[in-house]
């Protein structure tokens, strides 16, 4: 006999309480720092040094954020960050998606070696790429340009993008493409009319993933620039000689797009980070 839904055993109820209790505790652990840094970023500058501090937004103010945005270099760095991230998306997808498609669709000699090489190239520490590139970029006038930063970000994102897009294209059945070919498409048309629309949501998620990589990257961006900073580079280099409220505002500002994007690609979280960031 099955136990009826209405007669929950005490054991079951206790289990549920423990389950939700744990889930909520872990959620608080995750959310608390975000809430507090937001709180700090939206208080007055003086409130940073208040003691003890209120835990509720009782003195909500945009003073700190305004100060941060008006600090010299910040707005430019935000613009730089956005441009670098967009260029990184465009570059890594344009370069990487065809490669991902090739890995997904064709059997060819050297395929295993290439996949392995891509996996390995994900492991290299940023330092070992950024430092020699900084030296080279000095010689070819790419040093201290956002293009140089974007190039490095593309290189860092490419292995991920190829592996992610290969996964996406594998998910588009090959016979759809072949059906399109028998119905009058050439290869390119079949790709554009059938594969692209079906792969698009995944590709958008991959683009956002790339955005996050670039938006957050700090080591290379700092090493490769002097005046044309991206936002993380700007904040990092100002850490030691900036007031606390500047740092809070900067931290919060960097977090916001992340929150939005994670929300947008929540369906793909496991595919992007779980299966791919092996």
């Amino acid at each position: 006999m099955r136990i009826m839904q209405s007669s929950y055993s005490p054991r079951y109820i206790l289990g549920r309480i423990a389950l939700y209790g744990a889930a909520i505790l872990l959620a608080l652990w995750t959310l608390a720092p975000l809430y507090l840094v937001a709180l700090a970023a939206f208080s007055t500058r003086q409130a940073t040094f208040q003691w003890p501090k209120p835990l509720l937004p009782t003195d909500f103010s945009t003073d700190t954020m305004q100060f941060f945005m008006n600090t010299r270099g910040v707005l430019d760095s935000v613009g730089n960050s956005v441009i670098v991230a967009l260029v990184t998306i465009a570059g890594s997808l344009l370069l990487g998606a065809p490669g991902g498609y090739a890995l997904a669709r064709f059997r060819f000699r050297g395929k295993e070696a290439i996949s392995l090489g891509l996996l390995i190239s994900k492991m290299f520490p940023t330092a070992i790429l950024a430092i020699p590139l900084a030296v080279v970029f000095l010689q070819i006038d790419l040093y201290d340009t956002i293009w140089g930063v974007a190039l490095v970000h593309i290189a860092m994102a490419l292995p991920f993008v190829i592996i992610v897009t290969a996964g996406i294209f594998v998910g588009v059945p090959r016979d759809l493409e072949e059906a399109a070919q028998t119905l009058g498409c050439n290869r390119v048309q079949a790709f554009v009319r059938v594969v692209m629309p079906l792969a698009l949501p995944g590709l958008v998620a991959a683009a956002i993933f790339t955005f996050v990589i670039s938006w957050n990257e700090v080591f290379a961006a700092t090493i490769l620039t002097l005046r044309n900073r991206t936002l993380p580079a700007q904040v990092l280099t100002a850490l030691n000689d900036s007031p606390l409220y500047y740092r809070y505002a900067g931290g919060f500002f960097m977090i916001v797009p992340a929150l939005i994007f994670i929300f947008l690609i929540r369906k793909y979280l496991l595919n992007l980070w779980g299966n791919i960031s092996r």
Binding site: A27, V218, P232, V235, M254, A258, L269
Partner: peptide, 12 residues
């Protein structure tokens, strides 16, 4: 919620 820090840099 648990996934939010995925997109947050170590600096932030």
């Amino acid at each position: 919620i648990y996934a939010i820090p995925l997109a947050i840099s170590d600096l932030a």
